[in-house]
Design a protein around this nucleic acid. Structure first.
Length: 178
DNA sequence: CGTATTTGACCAGCGC
DNA sequence: GCGCTGGTCAAATACG
Protein backbone atom coordinates (compact mmCIF):
# COMPACT_ATOMS: atom_id res chain seq x y z
CA UNK A 1 0.00 0.00 0.00
CA UNK A 2 1.37 3.37 -0.91
CA UNK A 3 0.37 6.73 0.38
CA UNK A 4 1.28 9.92 -1.30
CA UNK A 5 1.82 12.99 0.80
CA UNK A 6 1.25 15.95 -1.50
CA UNK A 7 2.87 18.45 0.80
CA UNK A 8 6.14 16.76 1.52
CA UNK A 9 6.00 15.41 -2.00
CA UNK A 10 6.95 12.00 -0.77
CA UNK A 11 5.36 8.64 -1.11
CA UNK A 12 5.20 6.39 1.90
CA UNK A 13 4.92 2.67 1.70
CA UNK A 14 3.03 0.72 4.27
CA UNK A 15 2.97 -2.89 5.19
CA UNK A 16 0.87 -4.74 7.64
CA UNK A 17 2.32 -6.00 10.86
CA UNK A 18 2.83 -9.65 10.36
CA UNK A 19 1.08 -12.01 12.68
CA UNK A 20 -1.17 -15.00 12.36
CA UNK A 21 -4.80 -14.62 11.56
CA UNK A 22 -6.69 -13.07 14.37
CA UNK A 23 -9.87 -14.29 15.92
CA UNK A 24 -12.45 -11.62 15.31
CA UNK A 25 -14.88 -13.36 17.62
CA UNK A 26 -12.77 -12.46 20.60
CA UNK A 27 -12.27 -8.77 20.07
CA UNK A 28 -10.89 -7.87 23.44
CA UNK A 29 -8.84 -10.89 24.21
CA UNK A 30 -5.60 -10.36 26.01
CA UNK A 31 -3.69 -11.54 23.05
CA UNK A 32 -0.83 -9.61 21.65
CA UNK A 33 -1.43 -11.07 18.23
CA UNK A 34 -4.60 -9.16 17.68
CA UNK A 35 -2.92 -6.18 16.16
CA UNK A 36 -2.36 -7.43 12.69
CA UNK A 37 -4.75 -5.11 11.03
CA UNK A 38 -2.81 -2.09 12.05
CA UNK A 39 -0.26 -0.68 9.73
CA UNK A 40 3.10 0.84 10.33
CA UNK A 41 5.45 2.64 8.07
CA UNK A 42 7.85 0.54 6.13
CA UNK A 43 10.92 -0.52 8.00
CA UNK A 44 13.15 1.82 6.11
CA UNK A 45 11.26 4.71 7.52
CA UNK A 46 11.03 3.60 11.06
CA UNK A 47 14.32 4.64 12.46
CA UNK A 48 13.88 8.30 11.95
CA UNK A 49 10.28 8.89 11.16
CA UNK A 50 8.13 6.63 13.22
CA UNK A 51 7.93 5.10 16.60
CA UNK A 52 5.41 3.77 18.97
CA UNK A 53 4.38 6.44 21.38
CA UNK A 54 4.63 5.32 24.96
CA UNK A 55 2.53 7.98 26.54
CA UNK A 56 -0.68 5.98 26.39
CA UNK A 57 0.90 3.15 28.25
CA UNK A 58 -1.38 0.78 30.00
CA UNK A 59 -1.71 -2.95 29.76
CA UNK A 60 -2.80 -2.79 26.20
CA UNK A 61 -0.01 -0.77 24.82
CA UNK A 62 2.44 -2.94 26.63
CA UNK A 63 1.01 -5.81 24.65
CA UNK A 64 1.18 -3.81 21.49
CA UNK A 65 4.78 -2.92 21.99
CA UNK A 66 5.66 -6.49 22.76
CA UNK A 67 3.99 -7.64 19.60
CA UNK A 68 5.91 -5.18 17.54
CA UNK A 69 9.15 -5.99 19.24
CA UNK A 70 9.09 -9.60 18.29
CA UNK A 71 7.36 -9.30 14.98
CA UNK A 72 9.32 -6.40 13.71
CA UNK A 73 12.83 -6.06 14.99
CA UNK A 74 13.59 -2.77 13.36
CA UNK A 75 10.76 -1.12 15.19
CA UNK A 76 11.78 -2.63 18.43
CA UNK A 77 15.34 -1.53 18.09
CA UNK A 78 14.47 1.96 17.08
CA UNK A 79 12.52 1.76 20.27
CA UNK A 80 10.78 4.47 22.09
CA UNK A 81 13.16 7.28 22.61
CA UNK A 82 11.43 10.45 21.76
CA UNK A 83 9.39 11.63 24.61
CA UNK A 84 9.19 15.19 25.67
CA UNK A 85 5.67 15.09 26.91
CA UNK A 86 5.48 11.96 28.97
CA UNK A 87 3.53 13.70 31.67
CA UNK A 88 0.42 13.16 29.62
CA UNK A 89 0.18 9.52 30.54
CA UNK A 90 0.40 10.08 34.23
CA UNK A 91 -3.16 9.50 35.21
CA UNK A 92 -3.92 6.98 32.54
CA UNK A 93 -1.31 4.54 33.65
CA UNK A 94 -2.58 3.96 37.09
CA UNK A 95 -5.94 2.93 35.72
CA UNK A 96 -4.49 -0.40 34.80
CA UNK A 97 -7.57 -2.49 35.34
CA UNK A 98 -9.78 -0.44 33.09
CA UNK A 99 -11.30 -2.76 30.54
CA UNK A 100 -8.47 -3.25 28.15
CA UNK A 101 -9.08 -2.25 24.62
CA UNK A 102 -6.43 -2.52 22.03
CA UNK A 103 -4.83 0.83 21.75
CA UNK A 104 -1.80 1.61 19.67
CA UNK A 105 -0.22 4.95 19.03
CA UNK A 106 2.08 5.88 16.22
CA UNK A 107 4.15 8.98 15.82
CA UNK A 108 4.67 9.73 12.18
CA UNK A 109 6.37 12.48 10.29
CA UNK A 110 3.88 13.88 7.86
CA UNK A 111 2.55 17.17 6.67
CA UNK A 112 -0.94 15.82 6.33
CA UNK A 113 -2.89 14.68 9.33
CA UNK A 114 -5.00 12.10 7.60
CA UNK A 115 -2.84 9.22 6.48
CA UNK A 116 -4.88 6.92 4.35
CA UNK A 117 -4.49 3.58 6.04
CA UNK A 118 -6.87 1.68 3.84
CA UNK A 119 -9.96 2.08 5.95
CA UNK A 120 -12.70 4.58 5.52
CA UNK A 121 -13.09 6.94 8.46
CA UNK A 122 -15.86 9.28 9.44
CA UNK A 123 -14.92 12.22 11.59
CA UNK A 124 -17.12 12.71 14.60
CA UNK A 125 -15.39 15.14 16.88
CA UNK A 126 -12.65 17.64 17.41
CA UNK A 127 -11.30 18.91 20.69
CA UNK A 128 -8.72 21.29 21.92
CA UNK A 129 -6.70 19.49 24.52
CA UNK A 130 -4.85 20.99 27.39
CA UNK A 131 -1.08 21.40 27.15
CA UNK A 132 -1.28 21.58 23.41
CA UNK A 133 -2.24 24.28 20.97
CA UNK A 134 -3.22 21.63 18.50
CA UNK A 135 -6.69 20.16 18.18
CA UNK A 136 -7.35 16.47 18.47
CA UNK A 137 -9.57 14.85 15.88
CA UNK A 138 -11.77 11.83 16.42
CA UNK A 139 -12.62 9.35 13.71
CA UNK A 140 -14.73 6.24 13.61
CA UNK A 141 -14.51 3.45 11.07
CA UNK A 142 -17.43 3.93 8.74
CA UNK A 143 -18.05 0.27 8.08
CA UNK A 144 -21.21 -0.57 9.94
CA UNK A 145 -20.92 -2.87 12.86
CA UNK A 146 -17.30 -1.85 13.17
CA UNK A 147 -16.57 0.32 16.14
CA UNK A 148 -12.89 0.98 15.64
CA UNK A 149 -11.85 4.49 16.49
CA UNK A 150 -8.79 6.54 15.94
CA UNK A 151 -7.69 9.93 17.09
CA UNK A 152 -5.19 12.14 15.38
CA UNK A 153 -3.29 15.06 16.74
CA UNK A 154 -0.07 16.88 16.06
CA UNK A 155 2.85 16.52 18.37
CA UNK A 156 2.98 19.36 20.83
CA UNK A 157 6.44 20.66 20.23
CA UNK A 158 7.34 19.00 16.98
CA UNK A 159 4.70 20.00 14.51
CA UNK A 160 6.28 17.85 11.86
CA UNK A 161 4.91 14.79 13.60
CA UNK A 162 1.43 13.42 13.78
CA UNK A 163 0.31 11.12 16.54
CA UNK A 164 -2.32 8.60 15.52
CA UNK A 165 -3.93 6.36 18.09
CA UNK A 166 -5.97 3.37 17.01
CA UNK A 167 -8.43 1.76 19.36
CA UNK A 168 -10.25 -1.49 18.75
CA UNK A 169 -10.09 -4.23 16.18
CA UNK A 170 -11.85 -4.15 12.87
CA UNK A 171 -14.54 -6.77 12.51
CA UNK A 172 -14.15 -6.76 8.77
CA UNK A 173 -11.35 -6.93 6.31
CA UNK A 174 -9.63 -3.95 4.88
CA UNK A 175 -11.36 -2.59 1.82
CA UNK A 176 -9.58 -4.05 -1.16
CA UNK A 177 -8.92 -0.89 -3.09
CA UNK A 178 -5.25 -1.06 -2.35
C1' DC B 1 -30.31 15.90 -2.98
C1' DG B 2 -27.84 12.51 -0.27
C1' DT B 3 -23.83 12.17 2.43
C1' DA B 4 -19.82 13.89 5.07
C1' DT B 5 -17.99 17.40 8.16
C1' DT B 6 -18.16 21.04 11.43
C1' DT B 7 -18.84 22.66 15.89
C1' DG B 8 -21.09 23.79 20.18
C1' DA B 9 -23.68 21.16 23.50
C1' DC B 10 -23.82 17.44 26.29
C1' DC B 11 -22.03 13.75 29.30
C1' DA B 12 -19.08 10.91 32.31
C1' DG B 13 -15.02 10.22 35.15
C1' DC B 14 -11.89 11.98 38.24
C1' DG B 15 -9.63 15.05 41.71
C1' DC B 16 -10.48 18.26 45.00
C1' DG C 1 -21.12 17.94 45.48
C1' DC C 2 -18.48 21.08 41.87
C1' DG C 3 -15.60 22.07 38.19
C1' DC C 4 -12.30 20.62 34.87
C1' DT C 5 -11.14 17.69 31.14
C1' DG C 6 -11.62 14.50 27.41
C1' DG C 7 -14.82 12.01 24.57
C1' DT C 8 -19.26 11.83 21.94
C1' DC C 9 -23.70 13.50 19.93
C1' DA C 10 -26.29 15.80 16.70
C1' DA C 11 -28.10 19.82 14.31
C1' DA C 12 -26.55 22.79 10.99
C1' DT C 13 -23.79 23.38 7.31
C1' DA C 14 -20.82 22.30 3.41
C1' DC C 15 -19.92 19.55 -0.39
C1' DG C 16 -20.16 16.24 -4.43
Amino acid sequence: MNVYDPVSNKSYSYRSVDSPAIDYDVPHQQNSKSFDNFFVLDESMNEDHTSIVPEYEDHTLAYASAAFDEGSPSIGSSSIPLQGNSNVGGTGMRQAQRATKEKVAFRTESQVEVLDDGFKWRKYGKKMVKNSPNPRNYYRCSAEGCSVKKRVERDVEDARYVITTYEGVHNHLRPSNF
